[in-house]
């Protein structure tokens, strides 16, 4: 109702604006000013009256539509006023026909976002794909079969998470694949243990077996095939054999690094620190040792040291070929 009143008021004001100017037949500035003011007020009222009647989705932003209508009826006397009214009628009557209920509105269906979002995250995406029970089992089976060509380090956490999947086929496939990964390593361990027990003929062979055993137990840890106490056990075994080799080959830099990492895993940080330092002293490229040293520093909450080590690592990245040579000559 308010609209109607505003509409009548607008019409009244407009009429009075014109009639005033006409009746008085005066050509003074004051008469023009009163006309302009009354006309302006009428334009604004007209816009205000029509605005709520326009389709809501067409009048965004509202103040701009309001100003446009007001400006139009203000700037073009009479025709503008009539034009705004006419435009309003056309918009109400004819446009409504076009948007009549030819199409029912539907809710956007809830698709599974996992299928879209993760495609670029590679393995992480794979994890959520495999773990998503709303995806058809066949698709997940195929995805899992694809893991047979992926490194065990990446594949085994994914497979392990599938062991509790509600689909039995998926569980069993995951189990079979994990079992095969683990069996390969354990078979090699058995082979070397047998060789050791049989009393390897000469010390070279024995040393080789010991190193292989350290490698293999480490492999179980690295590929994430063992957890909890078994992981602990594998680390201890790997360390045990690693140290046996180091007793005879104290200058084996790669094994010193391994020893450092194993000690690090066991939480013996002091010893790990020393082993890392020794590995570097024995000539291992700094790029291989620095990240672990930085990790140790970080764990000790020695952030300044961690930052310094990372910066050093960064410098190494600049001249990857030449750096080891410079380093070598600097050391010697």
């Amino acid at each position: 109702m308010l609209n109607l009143k505003w509409g009548w008021a607008a019409l009244g004001l407009e009429l009075s604006a014109w009639s005033g100017a006409w009746l008085l037949a005066e050509r003074s500035d004051a008469a023009l000013l009163s006309y302009l003011l009354l006309h302006g007020a009428a334009s604004l009222l007209l816009s205000l009256a029509l605005l709520p009647l326009l389709p809501q989705r067409l009048i965004k932003p509202r103040w701009a539509t309001l100003l446009l209508m007001a400006a139009f009826s203000y700037a073009v006397p009479v025709a503008g006023f009539a034009g705004v009214l006419l435009a309003f009628i056309i918009l109400r009557v004819y446009r409504r026909g076009a948007e009549a209920e030819a199409f029912g509105s539907v809710q956007l269906p809830e698709f599974d976002q996992h299928q879209l979002r993760q495609s670029q995250f590679r393995h992480a995406g794979m994890g959520s794909f495999l773990g998503n029970t709303r995806i058809p089992v066949q698709a997940r089976m195929r995805a899992m079969a694809g893991l047979q060509y992926v490194s065990g380090r990446t594949a085994s956490p994914l497979l392990r998470s599938a062991l509790s999947d509600p689909s039995e086929d998926l569980r069993l496939l995951a189990y079979g694949m994990l079992d095969n990964l683990e069996k390969r390593i354990n078979r090699a361990i058995d082979h070397e243990l047998n060789a050791l027990q049989a009393g390897a003929a000469h010390s070279g062979q024995r040393l080789h077996s010991l190193q292989r055993l350290s490698d293999l137990y480490w492999e179980l840890v690295y590929h994430d095939l063992v957890q909890g106490d078994l992981r602990q056990h594998a680390i201890e075994e790997s360390l045990h054999y690693c140290e046996q080799v180091l007793q005879q080959q104290a200058d084996n830099a790669a094994l010193q690094l391994r020893r450092g990492r194993l000690l690090h895993e066991l939480g013996r940080r002091q010893d790990a620190e020393q082993a890392y330092a020794q590995a570097r002293a024995l000539g291992l490229p700094a790029t291989r040792v620095l990240p672990y040293q930085a990790q140790l520093a970080f764990e000790r909450r020695d952030y300044a040291q961690a930052r310094a080590l990372m910066r050093e690592l960064h410098q190494w990245g600049a001249l990857p070929r030449l750096r080891p040579v410079i380093d070598y000559w600097n050391h010697s």
Partner: peptide, 9 residues
């Protein structure tokens, strides 16, 4: 769950 020795233990 299957093949989870830690949880079994």
């Amino acid at each position: 769950p299957i093949a989870k020795p830690q949880q079994l233990a």
